[in-house]
Design a protein around this nucleic acid. Structure first.
Lengths: 234, 234
DNA sequence: CTCCATAATATGTGCAGACATAATAACGCA
DNA sequence: TGCGTTATTATGTCTGCACATATTATGGAG
C-alpha cells in the first residue's frame, strides 16, 4: 500500500495526535503544541495540521480557543453518532421482510402535550396518522404521527396507505432541524395489542419533532416492539 | 457593500446549498453542479465550496464519488449526534445534586454474554463494580460494570468509593473505540429495589463497550430510573 | 491599585495552484 | 461482439501565503 506516502496526510497526523492523547503523552488539561510548531515537526503546511486538529476538536478530545490555544479536554464529552434511517430501509437492511399497515388517517386535535411541544395552539387540527410496520410478519413498530398540514399541504393529497408517512415526509417535507428524545415506557393496552406483546412490557420509544425553520412539521412517536436495540458507535 | 463579504464564507455557501436541497431546487437523486462551477457561481475558490460540500456530505444530505460527481441523497440517513457526558456532570447540569454510592467491588467471572461481547474467554476474571448514582437524593442510575484489569492495571489501585468508575475510567483509561446499545427492559427484582421503583417498570438502558485498539477495556450496563429521557438534535 | 485602551497572538478561514486518486468513459484489438 | 487498456474527469488533499477574529497580555492614565 501507500504506506509512508501519506505520512503528511491529515489523517496520518490525526492518528498521531490521537495516539499522543490516548497514550497520555499529552495529559488531560495539558496544552497541545501550536499549529505552527506541529506543522514544523511534521514538515507540512499549517492547514494540514489544522484539518487534523479540527476533526479531533469536533470529536471532543481537545478544546480550542483563539489566542488561548489548544488543550486536551478534561472531561471529554463522548459523541456518538446515531444513524436514523427510514424504517423500511432499517428493517430490510437487517435482512427481514418489511410490511406496512395504515391504521388511521384523519384530522383531529392533538393532545395538549403534543400541541405544546409543537408550539401550537390547543385547538389546532392536525392530520393524525397511525400505522404499524412489520418485520418478517411480526409487529415491529407502532407509529403515531401528527402532521402540520398548514406547513406541508401536500400531505392532504397523500393517503399513506401504500407509502408510509415516514417515507413520504422524508421525500416531500425536508426539515431543517429536529429534536429527538429516547425513552422507555410500559406498554399501554392499545400498544400491547398492536405490538402483540404483554401489557406493561418495556418498550423502546423514539419521539421526533421536526421543524422547517420555525414551523413544526411533524411530531412522531415511534414505539418499538420488545427486543429492539438501537446501536451506535463512538 | 461588505454585506456579501461573508457571502464567500464556506458557511454562507453551506447554507445556500442546504437551502437548495431543502427547497427542492435540486431534487433527491439529482446531480449537484460540480465544485468548479459552484466556485465560479459564488466567485470563490474551489476549496471553499469543497469545505461546504464536505460538511453536507458528512451530514448525509448528498453523496459524493470521485469522477461520478455529487448527487442529492435519495434516502437521507439522518445522523444525530448523541453527547454522552459523565453522569455527575449530566446530573449537575440539570440543576440537581449528585451523589454516588458504591455497592460492590470485587473480582468475579462475568456472564457468558458479557464475556462474549468483550471477546474474552469464559473463565477470565474481571473487576466487577456496581454502583448507584443519585439525583437530588433519589436513585437515578444503576451502574453494573466489568473492567478488564489486564488492560487497565491502574484500576487495581482505585477503590471507586469516592470517584465513580465512570469518571475514573474517563480520566485514566482512554479508549479508541466504543459500541453503544440503547434499549428498554422491565425492571428485575434487584433493579427495582435499587432504583426504588415497582418491579417490571420500563427502564431505559445504555450498554457501552469500550476498546483500546483491539483490547476490551470495560463493559458497562447503565440502568436509568423511570422517567429518564435522552435528548438529542438532528 | 484599578480600569480601560491597545498590542500581541493562536486559531479560523480564504485563495490560487498543483498533484493524487478513484471511477467512469472511450477506445482499440482480437 | 466482448474485453482489457488507456484517457478523462470530479473529487480529495496539500502547499504557501494572506488576512480575519477572538482573546489574552500589556501598559498607561487616573
Amino acid at each position: 500500500m501507500t504506506a509512508p506516502a501519506d505520512a503528511n496526510s491529515w489523517q496520518a497526523i490525526h492518528a498521531e495526535l490521537m495516539r499522543r492523547i490516548a497514550e497520555r503523552v499529552w495529559q488531560p488539561g495539558d496544552p497541545v503544541p501550536h499549529e505552527v510548531d506541529l506543522a514544523a515537526e511534521f514538515g507540512c503546511a499549517r492547514a494540514t495540521v489544522n484539518r487534523a486538529m479540527r476533526e479531533i476538536a469536533q470529536a471532543g478530545f481537545i478544546e480550542r480557543r483563539r489566542k488561548a490555544g489548544t488543550r486536551v479536554a478534561l472531561n471529554p464529552v463522548r459523541r456518538a453518532t446515531l444513524e436514523i434511517p427510514i424504517t423500511r430501509i432499517d428493517v430490510e437492511s437487517r435482512g427481514m421482510a418489511w410490511r406496512y399497515e395504515l391504521i388511521e388517517r384523519q384530522f383531529a386535535h392533538p393532545s395538549q402535550i403534543v400541541a405544546a411541544r409543537m408550539g401550537l395552539a390547543a385547538d389546532v387540527r392536525l392530520l393524525h396518522v397511525r400505522a404499524r410496520h412489520f418485520a418478517d410478519g411480526k409487529p415491529h413498530l407502532y407509529e403515531d404521527r401528527w402532521i402540520h398540514t398548514a406547513v406541508v399541504p401536500g400531505a392532504l393529497d397523500a393517503d399513506f396507505s401504500a407509502v408510509s408517512a415516514n417515507e413520504w415526509l422524508v421525500q416531500n417535507a425536508p426539515f431543517t432541524r429536529g429534536d429527538v428524545t429516547l425513552s422507555a415506557a410500559n406498554a399501554s393496552t392499545i400498544e400491547a395489542r398492536l405490538l402483540n406483546t404483554p401489557e406493561n412490557a418495556a418498550l423502546f420509544i423514539v419521539e421526533r419533532l421536526t421543524w422547517h425553520a420555525f414551523d413544526p412539521i411533524t411530531h412522531v412517536r415511534l414505539v418499538y416492539a420488545p427486543g429492539y436495540r438501537m446501536e451506535m458507535t463512538i
